[in-house]
């Protein structure tokens, strides 16, 4: 039952909500909005602290004054966080801007490639099956659940060898490769579930036409995969963007090579003095790209989840 529970309701967004015959003032609605707003405020509390602190001067940015608005608004923290600082009042601070660029260069190919791998795997496992396809699926899926620390030491050895023997560049390219590899299980899972929910007849038809597997995949499957691609891309984008564990091992130099989480960590928990205002500005800057993705693709994210990717 579970696999078919959500099947075939792509138009769910258009399902009309039943209008309640309701005369007079709608108290339920008021309470509902009240609650929604209350939760919104709670969710935004940390964001408020991040924001106001990022505009505070050095003495002002202190935990004891967390809730107060800045005594004097300043953009200096943002400037220093973006462009870095060599010396002087702020000491040495790594710039976030180039780190954002590097992270983008890592995340975009990683998300796209692992999505395509997942899509191919999902298609094969759901619709062009071979003996023991289920076993293979289970073996792949299990990869999603390993605690990465458990494999870090041997993994590091393998990556170092790939770097020295095959010329794999360290830093961003190495990380992109890792995010592709460890993204395979979840992308496969999501696509397989999605394709399983696609009416079989669609693909059977092309099979009858004598179309080969690749042709079926390219001309029939890919075009209907958009909703799942959105979900998978967003998921991969976010998890690769926010990853710290791999980044801290394989990121290389925090100033010139590493993705933004490492740079941020160096700013926020550097071994010497921490500037809170700059840290918070940097934390916000590091979150901007994912935020943009959520704002512009959020609607499709939910839509994509709906179209069959969330089943157990």
């Amino acid at each position: 039952m579970t696999t078919t529970a959500l099947t075939g309701h792509f138009d769910a967004t258009k399902v009309p909500e039943a209008k309640k015959p309701n005369a007079g003032f709608d108290w339920g609605r008021l309470i509902r909005y009240g609650l929604l707003l209350l939760f919104l405020v709670i969710v935004l509390i940390p964001v408020y602290v991040l924001l106001v602190t990022s505009f505070k001067g050095v003495g002002d940015a202190d935990p004891s004054r967390a809730w107060l608005p800045p005594q004097e608004w300043t953009l200096e923290n943002w400037k220093v966080a973006l462009l870095g600082s060599k010396s002087g009042e702020y000491g040495k601070i790594f710039p976030v801007l180039p780190a954002l660029g590097r992270t983008l260069a890592m995340v975009v190919p990683a998300a796209i490639i692992s999505s395509f791998l997942g899509s191919m795997n999902g298609f094969v496992l759901a619709r062009w099956r071979f003996p023991y396809a289920n076993v293979v699926f289970t073996l792949i899926l299990f990869g999603m659940f390993i605690p990465y620390q458990a494999v870090m030491v041997p993994l590091y050895k393998i990556m170092i060898q790939m770097q020295s023997n095959w010329g794999l560049p360290s830093g961003i390219p190495t990380l992109a490769l890792l995010h592709i590899i460890y993204g395979i299980p979840i992308t496969t899972l999501i696509f397989r579930n999605y394709y399983q929910s696609v009416p079989q007849e669609l693909m059977e038809a092309s099979r009858v036409d004598g179309a080969g597997m690749i042709r079926t995949y390219v001309s029939v499957v890919l075009p209907i995969s958009i909703p799942s691609f959105v979900v998978v891309l967003i998921w991969q984008f976010t998890s690769a963007w926010n990853d710290f564990l791999f980044a801290s091992f394989f990121g290389g130099n925090a100033e010139t090579q590493a993705p933004v989480t490492v740079t941020l960590n160096a700013i926020a928990h550097g071994s010497m003095m921490t500037n809170y205002g700059v840290s918070m500005a940097a934390a916000l800057l590091a979150s901007v790209p994912t935020l943009v993705v959520y704002i512009f693709l959020g609607k499709y994210f939910v839509g994509g989840l709906m179209s069959g990717s969330v089943k157990g």
Partner: peptide, 24 residues
């Protein structure tokens, strides 16, 4: 060549050890 890593000695030592163990 600055092989420096993320702030904080903890993870730095860890990373160093892994590099040494990997023969690099």
């Amino acid at each position: 060549v600055n092989g420096g890593v993320t702030g904080g000695g903890g993870s730095a030592k860890d990373l160093l050890q892994t590099r040494l163990a990997a023969g690099e």
